[in-house]
Every structure is written in structure tokens, then in C-alpha cells.
Design a binder for these strands. Sequence first.
RNA 1: GCUCUGGUAGUUCAAUGGAUAGAAUAGCUCUCUCCUAAAGAGUAGAUCCGGGUUCGAUUCCCGGCCGGAGUACCA
Length: 596
Amino acid sequence: MIEQQLQQTISQVLNELYGISVDAASVVLQSTKKEFEGDYTLVVFPYVKQARKSPEALAGEIGAAVQQHLSLVTSYNVVKGFLNIAVCDSYWTSFVADNATNATYGIRSAADDAAPIVVEYSSPNTNKPLHLGHIRNNLLGWAVSELLAANGNKVKKVNLVNDRGIHICKSMLAWQRYGGGETPESSGMKGDHLVGKYYVEFDKHYKDEVKQLVSEGMDEETAKKEAPLMLEAQQMLKRWEEGDKEVRDLWAMMNKWVYAGFDQTYSSLGVGFDKIYYERNTYLLGKELVQKGLDRGVLFRKEDGSVWCDLTADGLDQKLLLRKDGTSVYMTQDLGTALLRHKEFDADRLIYVVGNEQDYHFQVLKLVLGKLGFDWANKVYHLSYGMVELPNGKMKSREGTVVDADDLIAEMEQTAEAMSREHGKNDDLSPEQQKHLYHILALGALKYFILKVDPSKNMLFNPAESIDFNGNTGPFIQYTHARIRSIVRKGIEDQGISLQQASPSVALTAKEREVIKSLHDMPAVIAQAGAAYSPAMVANYAYELAKNFNSFYQDTPILREENSAIKTFRVQLCNMVSIALKNTMHILGIEVPERM
RNA sequence: GCUCUGGUAGUUCAAUGGAUAGAAUAGCUCUCUCCUAAAGAGUAGAUCCGGGUUCGAUUCCCGGCCGGAGUACCA
């Protein structure tokens, strides 16, 4: 690769001329801004002191020496302390010709002996349907998995379904009491929505009861604990844990409805898992670990019988691990599942895609695992992502201020259909093909909208302004891809152009150069994004590439170019761009159509 | 209160410590006899405040102001 050669040479030159020893790898090259002449830029300020030269003089001397050493360098220029180096056209043209049909350009396949990376994501509760926040989780989990896979890792996607607990009992209780035997079949509702409806129903009646008690003179704290519905829900949870048949049957039935609903949403989002864990099977794990910790003296028991971990030395507080009645909490379970997963996969890393509201939880999890003596504690990585906010604040499912996942997808599909019909280019497609197209456009818009934002940051979604299809969006990239495919098809079919042809010697235009350099950057971008767990970097790269291509395409003849060597080269370039767009969008879980 | 986190055009997002802080959208102009105008070109518009480190700070450090999250027997 040209960057390495430049770094090597610069390092060598610095040593020969000024006795400065710099690692070739630590020579920082950046790509030259387009308002300047050149391809790569070296900032020489860091070496000025040691070389005892002015920035300009130093840059000039390095430039001259580099050009002498490397025949690929055709020229250089100096602006202040910036040395801009230009690489010859033939390097770029042969790069394109060599990779024109490389379908895996930019992505690496996994080595056979690679230890897997386990990515946990989604992890839904089975008492209500998925909303926009879950969408971010699912898309991020999927995209990060694909991104890691594109960097040559084996990836196992897992889901830990929270299928037990007081929240489920609330839905069950409300259904029992107010449901009148309603089922997904009888109501025509998707199972998860039906169960969610009764979760809301519970809350409504519960609040009424609390209000009633308060008006009878009870203070609010007590009323919340003493409301009959709450007591009954707790009773139900107890019966569930005891294995009471009636409760278990009801639970099994309603969970089944929810799973059917979730499966539909997952499949619509295009996400999936290698393994699904259920909390009913894991919530008791971890108690043994706690006992082990007590034996080793890293945990302690309070007078009331509860078990704690003291993390004050690490700058945190004390953390509860077992309640005074001996039952386990969330943390206890997570300790257990982490161990289980470690044993099961012998993973290189255990990644948890969980919202940033649980930053503290994962900090504690890692520390406690460490205290328990597990040296793999540092393999636990919390991929923390920000909340999706609405213009008027946070989403609260109980208050009904949520953007439902299924509704949102359906709306997007309608918009995609309306826009497509307006453009009216798809009349030759069958109804099934059209439907598929609307779906991938809708999801392209939604996924790109969410994934282009840095995962760690909160993001805002305004339901009033529906997600865009123009500008910096998924459909823009999809559309660019479809146009490129059209050119390549016509070039091959109508004009008999061969993509296999060896590299011609052609003089590059400025815009061609820009597109080629974008392509050239792709492997580095994927690697960098992988290291940062950031699909956003991939998304922004894909947009940049598509934009560069569009600009080039607008005023550069391709199929009407008269010189056949140039024409062939440009079609090769087109093909390579389409591959790059396809591969980057694939990482984001976005399908690109051949035509639209 | 304490801990963590964020503050960039009207709005939504970018920017390994580097050149004149990029896009998109909304506004105002152009460009379709053409390889797909879901496009392209132009115009106008921003780093919360105050210190510090540095040749150079949106970026790193300290202090303020404003937002968000967490804060122990919920998950």
C-alpha cells in the first residue's frame, strides 16, 4: 500500500537527514484537502524543533528526498508546514483495474482459529412491544456484529430475553381481570401489542387504586406498596416462582404471543441471533458465585442477611448482590450469565449492547468479576449507546409517549411507496418486487438515520418530521448504487466492455481522483470503525463516497466517452464503487437494490 | 448532594491535536433532447462562557453556565 511506503520513506529520510528516529508506523499522514494539490499530506511541525529548520524549509527538503526515493511520487508542494505529496496516475488506475471485480473489497474474512466475539443485543422484556429505543439497540447490535465480522472476527450474536418478573405478572394480571379472553386471533392484534395493551391497562387501574387510597388518607409511598393490584401481582410472581401450574400456563401462553410478535419485528428489521437465552433459565445463576465470593472474603454479609460488594476503594459505592431474603438481583444474574457465556464460547470479547443508563451497572459487573478472580473480566465490554429522545423529552412506555417500532416501519413503507410512485420508474416491476423495494427503501432510510449517529451520543427523533429520503440518507446511497448498476449493465451488455481488462494508462480528472481515493481509504475506514465499534463511521464513509461519485458522474461522460480505454476504465471504476457501496451498506444491514 | 455524560449553522448530524470547522435540511439562485434529476452547481449561515497546556485546541486539562442519565434490596 502506498501509505506504508510513504511512511517508511519519510521515516528513513528523517533519520538520514536529521538523525530523527521515528517509527514508520507513527508517521502521521492525512489525505490532502481538496483545495490543495496532492494526495497525501505530512504535517512537519512535530519535527521542526529537532531538525532545527523552519517548517517551510524542512517540508521542502523532505519532499525532495521522498520524491527521489519513491518513483510513485510525481510531485510535491509546500504550504506553510504542510507537505503535500502527489502520487502518479498509474498507481491509481492500476489500483482500480486490479480491484474492479473484487466482490469482497474492503472486508476481511475470519481466520479459522479466531476466538469468537460474543455480542449480546436486543434483550427485550416480554411485556410490551418494541419501540424506537429498541430499534436503535437492535440495529446497532446487528451492525456492530457485521462490522466486527468484516474485520475478520468470528461473531456470535446472542439475545437474553427477559421473560420473567413482576412486569410480566402485571400484564398477565390485567389480562386475566380485564381481558375477557381476548387473544391475538380474536382481536387481530399482534401478540406483543396485545400484551402491551394490558401492561398499560394494569398501570391505569393501579394508579386509580393508589389515588383512591391516598384520598382515604394513606400517604403515597405506602399506597403504592399497598395497592391491591400491586400486592396481587407480587403474589402472582411468587406463585410463578413456585411453579404454580395455572400461573405458568397463563405465562407460557402470553409469552408465546409476544415471541410471535417479536419474531415478526425482528425479521422486518432484518436482525437475528445465533443463540437466545431466556431469563427463566438464567435468573438463578450467580448465587453460587456469590457464595464463592463470601468464602474468599471479597464479599460481605450485612446483619439483615443481605450480601454486598464493597467498591468504595474503586470510587464506587457498595453494591447489593443478594437480597435479605436470599433472592438474587439483576447483578447476581448477570454475573452468572457472564460466566456461563465465557465457558460456552471461550470468547475473545463479551460485548453487551445496552443503553447508557446502565453504565454504572456494567462498571460494577466488571469490577465484581475481577474481585471474584476471573481474569477474563476485562473481556467484558459494554457498548453503551445514547437514548433516542423525542422533541418533548424521553420516551416513557407507561405514559404512552413512545414511537412504536412496527408503526414506524409501516409508516416508512408507505412514504417509500408514495415517493416511488411519484417518480414512477418501477412500473415494470412485479407487485412483489415493488413491495420488496418499498420495504428495503423504508428500512434503508430508518437504519441509516439511526446508524449514522455516533452510538455513544443521544439522538433526537422528531415524529412530526418523518425520516427523510433525500440528502444524507440511506435512499440516497441506494439510489446512487442503482444508477451505477445501470451504467455497468449498459456498458457490459450494450457496449461489450470487459471489466477484466488490464489497467490502461489514462490521465485522471480531479473528480475521478477523488472517487478513487475514497475507494482506496475503505479498508482503513472499516478497520478504524471496527476498533471504535462505530457503524456511524462506516455510514458517513458510504455517504461521502456516494456523494463524490455523484459529483463525478454529473459532468463526466462515461458511456459516451469516445476514448475506449478511458470508457473502460470509468466503467471499471463504477463497478468498484458499486461494490464498495454494497459492502459498506451490508455492514449497516441495508440492502442496495440493482434498480429503483 | 455525589458520579457519569453531552453542549458545533434556524434544525438534524460530521470533524486520529493541524491548513479557510464539513454535510444534510429549511431559505434564495441556476442546470433535465443526456449513462436513472430520489441528482448536480452556486449563495447565505455555527464551535456555551472564562482560564491553562501546545508551534497549533471544536478536540486535552481546570473552573463556571445549561441539558441528559444513574444514585444500592427494579430490570
